[in-house]
Every structure is written in structure tokens, then in C-alpha cells.
Amino acid sequence: MRAFARSIGHGVIDAVAKLGYFARLFVLTLRQSGTAFARLRLTIAQIHFIGNYSLVIIVVSGLFVGFVLGLQGYNTLQRYGSEQALGLLVALSLVRELGPVVTALLFAGRAGTSITAEIGLMKAGEQLTAMEMMAVSPVARVLAPRFWAGVVSMPLLAAMFSAVGVFGGYIVGVVMIGVDEGAFWSQMQNGVDWIDDVGNGVIKSIVFGIAVTFIAVFEGYDSQPTPEGVSRATTRTVVSSSLAVLALDFILTALMFTKG
């Protein structure tokens, strides 16, 4: 019984200590972000690595999500004779919710894992310690450029996801099923608000970008420097960032789309 209580106590202390370390490292990364901007080359290389290489999975997923939205949306709307609103439904679903959320989940799996594994292996190979001993801060040189690259890449990828998704909805709804093309686009144009819908979607994707990328960076930096430790950290990145995205999505949606 005492051992059980002790293990709970240990668990709580560890969790609080880790949360504190997470917050401290976040502040440190922001404070040491000067290098990431002063030497933009470092951040651009990371944008290329984690943003550009995620394009294929984002575009292909966006297209299929658009197909499914077109199909499901049409099936539901035509029961009420509102299939003209298909364009609006597809666009709002993507811009408000699916674009930012699905992109963030895919980004966690594609880019988040590679960031964690790379930083974890650098740690295991004593590369981060070597950097510190050369009077170069790994937070400034390794963590911050990756963090900002993720923050910049996420909204761009989410925008691409939504654009391709709308195109997918158009192919299924207009080209294949035969919904009126004029109604499809004009309803979308009239019904989607730049600030309330697109703007809030962009804010969501920036928040998800911060959450997913920082979790990935943190898990890599905090990993045990062993093969098992790196593999566990990579798993934790996917689990924690997916849960964080879904929880944050609920909070942000409640704040943004609840009319008071």
C-alpha cells in the first residue's frame, strides 16, 4: 500500500517537474530565437526540410478529404434540396476545422516524429553536448530554427490542404455528380467570411503549429540518449501532440465560434 502511494507521489512529482521543464524550455527557446532570425538560412533550411517534404502527404490527404466531403455533403444536402450549398459546406468544413486539425495531425506524424528523432539522436551521439562545450547553445542553434520552421510551415500547409480539399469537393460535387458550378462557387464566396472563417482557421493552424512543433522539439531534447529512449520519445510526440491538437481545437472553437 505504501509502495503504491509512493509510486503515485513519484508520478505526480515527475509530471509536475516535466511540465515545469517544458514551460522553461519554451520560454528559453523564445528568448534564444534571435539566431533563428538573424541567420535566416538555418530556419529556411528547416522550413525546406520539414515543410516542403510534408507537402505530398498534405496535398494527397487534402484531395481525398475533399472527395469524401463532396460525396457525404451532397448525400446529406440533397435530402433537404440544398445541394447548391455544397461549395459552402465543403469550404467551411475545411477552412474552419479539417484544414487546421487534419494538417496538424499529419504534420505531427510526418514532421514531428522526424524532428524528435533527429534531436534525440543528436543528443544520444553527444552532438548537443559537443555544441555546448563549443560555447554554442543547442537551444539557439538546433531547437529554435526547427521550432520557427514548424510554426511558419503549419499555416501554409493547412492553407494548401484546404485549397486542395475544396478542389476535391469540386471534382466530386460539380464534375462527377453535377451540382451547379455557379452555385457551388457563389455560395462559397458569399458564405465564407475572411476574418471569422479564414482568419480563425489561420489562427488555429498557427496555434497547432506552435504546439506540435514545440512538443516534437521538447521530446527530442528531453529524450533518454539511448535507442529505446529515442523511440519512446518519438511515440510520445505523436500521442501528446495529437491530443494537444484535439484539445486545443475544442478550446479555440469554443472561443471563436460561440456567439455570446
Binding site: L121, E126, Q127, T129, A130, M133
Partner: peptide
């Protein structure tokens, strides 16, 4: 200057 056991080169 520090020489690490396995070099710790940036891979």
C-alpha cells in the same frame, strides 16, 4: 577544446 569519446561529429 574537448574531444569526445566517439567524436560527436555533427552527422
Amino acid at each position: 577544446g574537448m574531444l569526445f569519446q566517439f567524436g560527436a561529429l555533427f552527422t
